[in-house]
Nucleic acid binder design. Structure first.
Lengths: 336, 336
DNA sequence: AAATCTTGCTTCATCGATTGAGCAAGTGCG
DNA sequence: CGCACTTGCTCAATCGATGAAGCAAGATTT
């Protein structure tokens, strides 16, 4: 590693010397409370000018060491490979900056060990708050942070120890399922039970979506056997091979499918292309998540879009109001 | 903002007191060079145990203030809304961590002012190195960082003042164009000139891709008028309305199109759906960038996938070898 | 026995910014 | 003139971790 820095950086002491004043005055001027510290306007202007000329940059480490709050807000995300998490991160950065906070983001690739490691690192960087997004074990993160006096908020997947902001998975799934059923009925005449593909049996979102999925079937008086549910994880390859296996098993296959994410949808579509029992047009699909490219895949795919702006707005509200109780805010997703 | 931290955190002084030793010994033990500092194994173990019991977390700010290198490596990215940048960020984080560096990532939404602001902030955080990815003005960033003695590397888009790692846009575009032309020929019989949609006329990548696009036409002895090039930016809406306008203008329309990114492709496909002169199947499309969902859109879309692992590997090589000369490394993209 | 070396620590200055306390000069008032 | 008050600054301690220098006690050499 050669990331060598040659010259040493300009400090407030250098500026003080150049301006013929004290470091204390320079600090007061540059961090904006020179009025409170009774520094004259002339000196303030002089210091500001010299700082600009010298290309002075504050040493955050030194500044943060002295201050009690860092105004750093950490976010742990599982992946950057889909529009949902991408927009969460992008909007989070923007909103955090607008509120005067510094966003620090880490991607853990759904690796539980990395999640904990990431939380620990964030604590070292003195974050004021950690947002655990889609974490496999949010409560572990909360415990770790609580021990350091740092609060956490869960996003996308809820935890039991900190406030959570998630989509209303039940309602979204119920409505999505209803639409797929209706589409199946209109296009194929039959009202047969759908299949549910993707997600992890243990995770809260998958369970809630499954509940909505079952409810929609019940709403239409359709019997649903347990073997129609294939919670094979989110990865495309997993979905593809699970469908392959399922097809080989000889169990009945539905022409309507509820797919748990756009990532899983990739696997489902690939399987349909390569080995699907009938043409792709003979399927009615629904996807819990939105991607504009999926919208272009054809009219036979319904989508539910999670309301990222509303979720983040709620999240920052929780931060601002200092809520610590493990409440769950369910944000209605957008259909169409 | 209430991000209040209640208790104050455990420091090495607290641990020293508990262990009946000095802060210096605690520091030496916890940062791993206790052997060099001749601390006994017993004391080392005692300190380690107490640190764990107390859930001690290093104060990075204090540590970094004292050290000369921060081992923080910054990356500036324009967007998180596509697979290309998503995989760059994800792999960058992984590789940086493997090399013992701490990745600090900031998204600037292609806003030139934010880019500069982001670079400045990174300097405040004492980064050892900044990677400017797809920056609108990479040289400005390099200048700013150089003034603070911080090196930069340009990724995706080259600059004149620092080493750059980019795709071989010319070769990639030439081959992609060739394939679209062949596909057009096979499917529609004709060898007509293609259209080029998306990108910004000024940016290096667009210019190089255009050069490859023109070269491929020349290779096949096809005349290409300038009005077939629509460099309307990357946004889908821009592409959609530009195509709309172009169709209205009465100028000749090609059945083959070279689209400059998956994001732009969204707009192209939307326009084809809504207002395309003939069915989508009557078009041969090529896209400079890869998205697995696009691969599912049909067989009539060729794609070029930029070789992100090779690009990042090269980038870290440049860092390790301490190269400062503004060389340009062109990484061949992957076709299929 | 004296000189030297080794072991295992501690002491203290330092990194750069922040902030309470303090101080000198000037202003206002009776 | 003397006292209080304001203005405009400087001084010095501090945040937590680090590491060069130093020191005491025991081990080894001459």
């Amino acid at each position: 590693m050669s990331l060598d820095r040659q010259q040493k950086r300009t400090t407030i002491y250098d500026l003080a010397e150049l301006a013929g004043t004290s470091a204390s005055a320079v600090s007061a001027v540059l961090n904006g409370n020179w009025k409170k510290r009774r520094i004259s306007k002339q000196l303030a202007e002089k210091i500001t000018r010299i700082a600009e000329e010298q290309g002075y940059a504050l040493n955050m480490q030194a500044s943060l060491l002295r201050r009690e709050k860092s105004h750093i807000i950490g976010m742990i995300v599982p992946k950057y490979d889909n529009r949902y998490f991408g927009s969460i991160v992008e909007l989070f950065e923007t909103m955090a900056r607008d509120k005067g906070l510094f966003p620090l983001i880490t991607c853990t690739r759904r690796d539980p060990a990395l999640e904990i490691e990431a939380a620990r690192t964030m604590l070292s960087y003195q974050v004021d708050c950690v947002i655990a997004t889609g974490a496999t074990d949010p409560d572990r993160i909360t415990e770790l942070c609580a021990a350091a006096g740092v609060r956490t908020i869960n996003l996308d997947l809820p935890g039991k120890l900190a406030p959570s902001v998630i989509s209303d998975n039940f309602a979204g799934a119920r409505e999505l399922t209803r639409r797929i059923l209706v589409s199946c009925h209109q296009r194929f005449g039959a009202m047969e039970p759908l299949m549910f593909v993707g997600g992890r049996g243990g995770d809260h979102n998958t369970m809630e979506r499954l509940r909505g999925f079952r409810q929609a079937h019940a709403d239409h008086g359709i019997d649903l056997e347990d073997d129609r549910v294939i919670a094979c994880g989110y990865a495309p390859e997993k979905a593809q091979s699970a469908l392959q296996e399922r097809a080989a098993s000889g169990l009945p296959f539905s022409r309507g499918m509820f797919v748990n994410s756009t990532i899983t949808l990739e696997g489902v579509l690939r399987w349909l292309r390569l080995a699907g029992p009938v043409s792709e047009q003979e399927f009615a699909l629904g996807c819990f998540d939105y991607d504009p490219l999926v919208a272009l895949l054809g009219d036979n795919i319904e989508m539910v879009r999670q309301d990222v702006p509303a979720m983040l707005t709620r999240m920052f509200e929780l931060i601002e109001h200092g809520s610590f109780e493990p409440t769950v805010s369910e944000i209605p997703p957008l259909l169409r």
